[in-house]
Design a binder for these strands. Structure first.
Lengths: 208, 208
DNA sequence: TAGATTGTTAATCGATTAACAATC
DNA sequence: TAGATTGTTAATCGATTAACAATC
């Protein structure tokens, strides 16, 4: 029985909060409390937690540490995933330096760029290599995950190259729907989608 | 009868494709073709389109221009929304320069930062002002939308200031769940959530 | 103990998908 | 005309929520 995607999407918020509570020295936490803090319903938090297999105790709640460990395991964040970045523009640069990734088990270890002027430089701590080095780098370092942060028009070409190089999962930030073989995991982070939801909500509010 | 959020989330992809078709000179487009291109089912595309009120013609499809106009209207993207940005770090800088926003009716017209060294500089074309100027700027320019791209620990303070200044909607990129009054539209773009879904899918693939 | 909280089972809700008549 | 495509109504599917007994 697989964990529903909507539940998976709430896991990072639980995790963030739980880590905070752990730092504060709390041993147990109730679903009610998590729910209040995140604006969710207690029943939903309980249901979500039940997906991890962790059991709580009535009146007391769940063990903070056990919950953190299990959430990280379910997300595959317990052993850090090394990833490469393609595209070293402003977005790529921001992603390479993004502090939050540490806590996600995600580590960007190299960046690749067509622009030869950027090759040899660093994005924060991440070295920039030329595109030609990509296939051998992926192979030699057994990289599974690639992040695409190139302009829309080159995204498909980059994706094709990544697939040919043996990547398993692609996280695409370019504003275009790229196509990949069915066995490749594809995740799109589309700013337009987020903004669409925001816009629609604003529009509703205005017309109330 | 409100348009479902999942449908709203697919609108940007339709729009992007339709604009491409328009540029290519196509007059009509079938739901079948849109579906194939985006990896969706035709029935779902038809259902989504029906939410816009646009009617198609059997065998011929939908008028590309009418569909574009109606999708943009439904999203509130027909009249450009001016927004401000708070935080001028790497992420803020990338957002300010993001080319894709043009097509969304989103225009970032100013940025605000606590760091006085940045005040007076520009992120691309976007001027950086000091935080003290924020409330009057929002008031005078009737800004409805603010984008938060500051570190997690200052996000709540920024949100409070924005609410006090009269902002209607907040798009939060900081990795933290901020709290706002119920009448404020809050949209979170959380890289952790996207990565969680990607990780979970990779994990499933590996254990198959 | 009393009462808050858990875990489970069932009900509800909403989105997706299927079926099919209408139509160009 | 024949056949692809639309629009509608109903069925299915999956997630959320409610109800409530169990329990610490």
């Amino acid at each position: 029985m697989q964990i529903p995607i909507p539940t998976i999407k709430r896991f990072p918020s639980y995790l963030r909060l739980l880590k905070l509570y752990k730092k504060q020295g709390m041993i147990h936490i109730s679903a009610t409390m998590l729910a209040n803090e995140l604006g969710l319903k207690p029943i939903q938090v309980r249901k979500d937690i039940s997906c991890t297999g962790i059991e709580g105790r009535p009146r007391i709640g769940f063990e903070v540490e056990a919950l953190i460990a299990m959430l990280e395991e379910q997300l595959g964040w317990d052993n850090s995933s090394e990833a490469i970045l393609v595209g070293s523009g402003h977005l790529g640069s921001a992603l390479a330096r993004y502090e939050g990734f540490d806590g996600y088990g995600l580590k960007i270890i190299a960046s690749f760029d067509l622009n030869t002027a950027k090759v040899g430089t660093f994005l924060g701590e991440v070295p920039v290599f030329s595109m030609e080095k990509l296939p051998s780098f992926v192979l030699e370092n057994r990289i599974h995950i690639a992040i695409i942060a190139v302009p829309a028009q080159s995204a498909q070409d980059v994706a094709d190259l990544l697939v040919k190089s043996g990547i398993l999962a692609i996280w695409n930030f370019a504003p275009v729907d790229i196509k990949v073989p069915g066995d490749i995991v594809l995740q799109r982070t589309d700013l337009a989608v987020s903004f669409a939801v925001l816009s629609a909500k604003v529009k509703r509010k205005m017309s109330d």
